[in-house]
């Protein structure tokens, strides 16, 4: 995590006066990094941490921001996405925050980024070894909506007592004929802990499995950290006769023509006509450019 370098003067200079590099004081960053080290050591296990109040509201990514703030170094290149896009308002706001308080370089290109903070998506472009994904997590406890008590869920995790998780999936099939959990689809990590992958669509779940990138999860309001070290087995919960399956896109992207990526639906006129475009704007743009070049060469 290049922790030792944190705190050095930033490369690009333009930093908000009166605040430490990356906003948090070094003591707080160390506390968070200690939590992250534990999280990496016990994949999928939620580590409580002394979450700080951030200048952005709880629920807007304060957990992810604290994780990013505690691991970022002046040499890092940050990409921030929300709903897969770099230019959604909250992604812009968080990127600006780090530009202001850390003076770091940012990018929209998945391949160029060393840290990718995200809300609700994993980029379509495959991640590489050395990259770090930072997820913003609203409710870290996968059992929360089945068992509201924290004391009880902690015990269930400790004992690996996950029967009630399957009760929920069973009920889904009873009611809908399918497992109707579309996002925040629970996974079993490294054969041990059941984990909430944050509200990514289940389309993204397979990208967690054996990923070469380090995945860090931060829940600010709930004050929990958890992690998937690179190359960790991540299995989406299911039944043998109702295996986990992703929702295949129903159309091709109207811009880049991809039939492989997760699509946003746009309603383009008052009659409700729909078009679909990639949720991952960087992926879409690269593909559109490549197609343009290909066409250019052809003509």
């Amino acid at each position: 995590m290049n922790a030792a370098r944190a705190g050095k003067a930033p490369r690009s200079g333009k930093m908000l006066p009166g605040y430490n590099f990356a906003y948090l004081d070094e003591e707080s960053k160390r506390m968070i990094r200690r939590g992250l080290l534990k999280a990496v050591a016990i994949p999928g296990f939620q580590i409580p941490f002394g979450g700080r109040e951030m200048p952005l509201p709880y629920g807007w990514g304060t957990g992810g921001i604290q994780v990013t703030a505690s691991i970022i170094t002046p040499e890092d290149v940050l990409k921030v996405i929300d709903q897969g896009a770099d230019d959604t308002t909250n992604a812009v706001s968080i990127r600006q925050f780090f530009e202001r308080v850390a003076g770091i370089a940012s990018t929209t290109r998945t391949r160029e980024a060393t840290i990718i903070q995200t809300r609700h998506r994993i980029p379509e472009t495959p991640l590489a070894s050395g990259q770090i994904m930072v997820f913003q997590v609203p409710i870290p406890e996968p059992l929360r909506f089945i068992e509201p008590s924290e004391t009880e869920t902690a015990t269930l995790h400790a004992l690996g007592d996950y029967g009630i998780m399957h009760v929920k999936l069973y009920e889904d099939i009873v009611r809908h004929g399918h497992i109707a959990t579309c996002y925040a689809y629970p996974v079993e990590v490294n054969g041990r802990y059941v984990m909430d992958p944050s509200p990514i669509p289940r389309f993204d779940n397979p990208k967690l499995h054996m990923s070469p990138a380090l995945m860090l999860f931060g829940a600010g309001r709930e004050k929990r950290l958890y992690a998937l070290p690179p190359h960790t087995a991540v299995v989406s919960l299911d039944f043998e006769d109702h295996p986990f399956a992703i929702q295949r896109p129903e159309a091709a992207c109207a811009i880049c023509g991809s039939t492989e990526s997760y699509l946003d639906e746009l309603i383009v006129d008052d009659a409700g006509a729909r078009r679909y475009v990639c949720s991952d704007t960087d992926y879409c743009q690269r593909r559109a450019e490549a197609r343009g070049e290909a066409r250019g060469e052809a003509s």
């Binding site: 909250n90 609700h120 579309c182 997760y262 946003d264």
Partner: peptide, 14 residues
């Protein structure tokens, strides 16, 4: 109030 396009899209599809 933040966008939830992705979650909503997945439910819409289902």
């Amino acid at each position: 109030k933040l966008p939830h396009y992705v979650d909503f899209q997945s439910e819409l599809g289902l």
